[in-house]
Nucleic acid binder design. Structure first.
Length: 443
RNA sequence: CGGGGUAUGGCGCAGCCUGGUAGCGCACCUGUUUUGGGAACAGGGGGUCGUAAGUUCGAAUCUUACUACCCCGACCA
């Protein structure tokens, strides 16, 4: 993409309302624009990151056997009356009337809707286990939205819902999601720690929050240090082995402040204790028949008798992750995107736009990298060099190729790694090949 | 929802107390000199001062109501 033809309204100054680093950088890098309290427009750079995160989530859900659907944002109030949550959910749920005076709600979550779909379509235990997910905008009318996209009112969430014929089978579904989540976050460069969680209003008795550590996190967390460095689990684990892998991950102490047990924590060797702040990026629940009973969701068991299905739900805050990743990966100059979610993989800086030789060299590399499938943000504007460097660092493009007349005389360009700040001369002829290799290795 | 605050060009702010028809920095446009880490100079464009009503010869400025947004708290993906 040529920057001269793009919408990336970066700013030198920090907007007054942003108090945390991810919000500041998202506004300064021109990724989002606030439209109302807790509601944002996603500008091109933000939209690309959002889509990349969404795609990683999708791939890992698919791989874990979940099946994608898409449910609407608006839902009939009747379904919520059936589950009993129309009255329980409170003012966080946005209620709307249509022109016929029918009650609608803007969905804060989708348990009711998915159970309705399921009960109308699935009749037999033979079709189970089944896990349906979608990635859709949610609305929760928070008392106080804040921290940019970290606690917005409208947010993009992946929510999956598992259906099983027995509690034991449901636990297998739960474990699959548990491990898929660890892989999902690892692919975004995040170390997410599963922590025992309070199931809250969703209900049930088995629940974990996935927390990434960041100084600006909303909750205080306590855990064993080993969890931070733990490698993500293997992608292919036999069903019979799931429990032992999950057990290995949950055997260490890890809890948020509301579930914290100081006595248990004391049993961890002092050098291994970690107290930090964290951001919740995922939350999984097993809730049994909490919805299937009131909504009469049954399948025929192997004995021919109907049984209530055992359910679980699994959420990932996709739009929150955009902020979360920035909180976890930035410096004083701006964002440092992991390659997997970067809006563009390579930033190409033309230090002297308008100079024939420089333009020619840059244009050629832009074409070559594009042809090789690399996503390039090409700064072809006539700004000064310093402004271009600052902007590219602020936006956080992981690899930068800097081309100016000075190096060009010797057939050289400069390759800069955003994360480390390292800059090396590289021959112009070898640049494309080298970049392709680096990008592919880091994807 | 309780407490506090703000609203003036795209962004950051001054002007308000003491009423006289809007200013600064950044950004934007033109030109010149520059040109490797957010250049300098000169010229220029852009604002019904959140909305409505009131007081007044005259309101960004005083009064009232409303709205929006931000911060702290309780609540939450």
């Amino acid at each position: 993409m040529r920057l001269s033809r793009y919408l990336a309204p970066t700013q030198k100054e920090t907007p007054a309302e942003a108090t945390i680093v991810s919000h500041r950088y998202m506004l300064r890098a021109g990724m989002v624009k606030q439209s109302a309290a807790g509601i944002y427009s996603w500008l091109p750079l933000g939209q690309r990151v959002l889509r990349k995160i969404e795609q990683i989530v999708r791939e890992e859900q698919d791989h874990a056997g979940a099946v994608e659907v898409l449910m609407p944002t608006l839902q009939s109030a009747d379904l919520w009356r059936e589950s009993g949550r129309y009255d329980d959910y409170g003012q966080e749920m946005l209620r709307i009337k249509d022109r016929q005076d029918r009650d609608l709600i803007y969905g804060p979550t989708n348990e009711e809707l998915i159970h309705d779909i399921f009960r109308q379509s699935v009749r037999s235990y033979k079709q189970l286990p089944m896990n349906l997910y979608h990635i859709q905008w949610k609305f929760r009318d928070e008392i106080r939205p804040r921290f940019g996209v970290m606690r917005g009112r409208e947010f993009l969430m992946k929510d999956a819902y598992s259906f099983d014929v027995s509690e034991e089978a449901a636990r297998t579904s739960y474990n699959k999601m548990f491990l898929a989540y660890l892989r999902t976050f690892a692919r975004m460069g995040l170390s997410a720690i599963p922590m025992k969680a309070d199931p809250g209003p969703i209900g049930g008795d088995l629940s974990h929050e996935f927390i990434i550590l960041a100084d600006t996190g909303e909750s205080e967390v306590f855990c064993h240090k080993a969890l931070v460095e733990m490698a993500p689990p293997d992608r292919n684990i036999a069903d019979d082995d799931l429990q032992s892998v999950v057990d290995q991950r949950t055997s260490y102490y890890a809890a948020t402040d509301e579930m914290h047990d100081a006595v248990e924590f004391e049993k961890v060797a002092e050098a291994d204790r970690l107290t930090a702040r964290g951001i919740e990026v995922g939350h999984i629940f097993y809730f049994g028949t909490k919805y299937s009973e009131p909504m009469n969701v049954t399948v025929a068991g192997s004995d021919g008798k109907d049984v209530f299905v055992e359910g679980g739900s699994y959420g990932i805050g996709v739009s929150r992750l955009v902020g979360g990743i920035i909180e976890a990966s930035h410096d004083d100059d701006g964002i440092i995107w992991p390659m997997s979610v970067a809006p563009y993989e390579v930033g190409l800086i033309n230090l002297k736009a308008g100079d024939e030789a420089t333009d020619k060299a840059c244009d050629a590399l832009y074409d070559e990298l594009g042809a090789a499938g690399i996503e390039v943000l090409y700064d072809d504007t006539s700004e000064r060099a310093g402004a271009k460097f600052s902007k590219m660092d602020l936006i956080g493009i992981p690899l930068q190729l800097i081309i100016g007349p000075r190096g060009l005389k010797d057939g050289k360009a400069e390759l800069k790694v955003r994360a480390t700040g390292e800059r090396d001369d590289i021959s112009l002829d070898a640049a494309a090949q080298k970049l392709v290799a680096m990008v592919e290795q880091a994807r």
